[in-house]
C-alpha cells in the first residue's frame, strides 16, 4: 500500500513562514520521529497536513488520494495541553470521541462502540479508570486516554503531537509498545518527539525539521551528530555530552 506523500508543503503564521517546501514520502508500516528545535514547525507540520492550519502551497496525499478525502483512515493525537482537562466528562467518554466520525451525525454511540472504547482503554492499562473524571487522572493517564482514543479510530496513519512529553516512565513504555504494535500491523505513525536520547531506540525513520526538511530517511543513516547539529544550529549538546 502506498503511504503518505507530502510535496512542497508551505505554511505561514501571521506572515512568518513556519514551513517551507516540505517534501517527503513515508513508507507504510513505519514509525517516524519528527525532530527539531522549538519553533521548527513540528506541530504546524501535523496540523497543516491535516488542514487544521491553512497551507500556502503544496499537496498531501495518502494512498494516492488527498488527505482530506481519507479522514477515516487518519488518527490524530493533539498535544495533551491543548484541551481543558476540567471538562465535565470521563475517560470512557473521551475515548468514545474517537468514534464520532464512525457513529455519524444525529446518532448516539451504541453499546458496541462503548465496548470498543473499553477495550482500547484496557489495552492502555486504563480499564479501571473508565468512569474516572478526566481531571482526576495523572498526566500519564491522560496521555494513555488520548492513545486509547487514537486506537479506537482504527486508522491507517497516525499523527501524534508529543505523546511522550511529561509522562512517567511506565506510560512511556506502554505508549511505545502500542506504537510498535501499530507498526507491526502495517500502520504508519508520525510522532513529534523532543527527546534526542531515545530517537534511535524508538523510531525507524526520522524527519529532521527546522522550517525546512533538513534530513529525512532511515534513522540509522540520517540521525548523525552532524545532521542534528545542522538542524538545531548552535547551542545543542550532543547526547553523551548532556550533563546528568
Amino acid at each position: 500500500m502506498q503511504g503518505l506523500a507530502v510535496t512542497d508543503l508551505s505554511a505561514s503564521y501571521r506572515k512568518n513562514n513556519v514551513l517551507e517546501d516540505v517534501s517527503f514520502e513515508l513508507p507504510q508500516g513505519s514509525l517516524t520521529g519528527i525532530v527539531g528545535p522549538n519553533g521548527a514547525g513540528k506541530s504546524t507540520l501535523l496540523k497543516t497536513m491535516l488542514e487544521l492550519h491553512p497551507k500556502l502551497s503544496g499537496t498531501v496525499t495518502f494512498a494516492g488520494a488527498p488527505l482530506s478525502k481519507m479522514r477515516r483512515k487518519i488518527g490524530y493525537v493533539p498535544q495533551r495541553g491543548s484541551v481543558d482537562w476540567d471538562f465535565p466528562t470521563d475517560a470512557l467518554d473521551v475515548v468514545l470521541m474517537g468514534l464520532y466520525g464512525a457513529v455519524g451525525w444525529l446518532k448516539r454511540p451504541k453499546a458496541g462502540h462503548r465496548q470498543q472504547a473499553l477495550q482500547a482503554l484496557a489495552q492502555m492499562g486504563m480499564a479501571d479508570y473508565a468512569d474516572r473524571q478526566i481531571s482526576q487522572l495523572s498526566g500519564g493517564q491522560q496521555q494513555r486516554v488520548f492513545l486509547a482514543r487514537a486506537l479506537v479510530q482504527d486508522a491507517e496513519l497516525y499523527f501524534m503531537d508529543e505523546p511522550l512529553a511529561g509522562v512517567d516512565a511506565a506510560t512511556e513504555q506502554a505508549i511505545m509498545t502500542t506504537l510498535r504494535e501499530l507498526k507491526g500491523r502495517g500502520k504508519s505513525v508520525m510522532v513529534v518527539h523532543h527527546d534526542l536520547q531515545t530517537v534511535e531506540d524508538y523510531f525507524d525513520h526520522v524527519l529532521l525539521l527546522n522550517r525546512r526538511v533538513m534530513n529525512y530517511g532511515e534513522t540509522a543513516e540520517i540521525f548523525t551528530k552532524d545532521n542534528v547539529y545542522r538542524t538545531y544550529g548552535a547551542g545543542l549538546r550532543w547526547r553523551k555530552e548532556v550533563p546528568s
Binding site: 487544521l52 479522514r71 481543558d84 464520532y100 454511540p109
Partner: peptide
C-alpha cells in the same frame, strides 16, 4: 448535535481531523 457540541467544545482539533 449533542456529541458534536461536546467534541467541538472539548477538542476542536480532533473534531476537525474527524471531518
Amino acid at each position: 448535535f449533542y456529541k458534536e457540541w461536546k467534541i467541538t467544545s472539548f477538542d476542536p482539533a480532533l473534531a476537525a481531523s474527524l471531518g
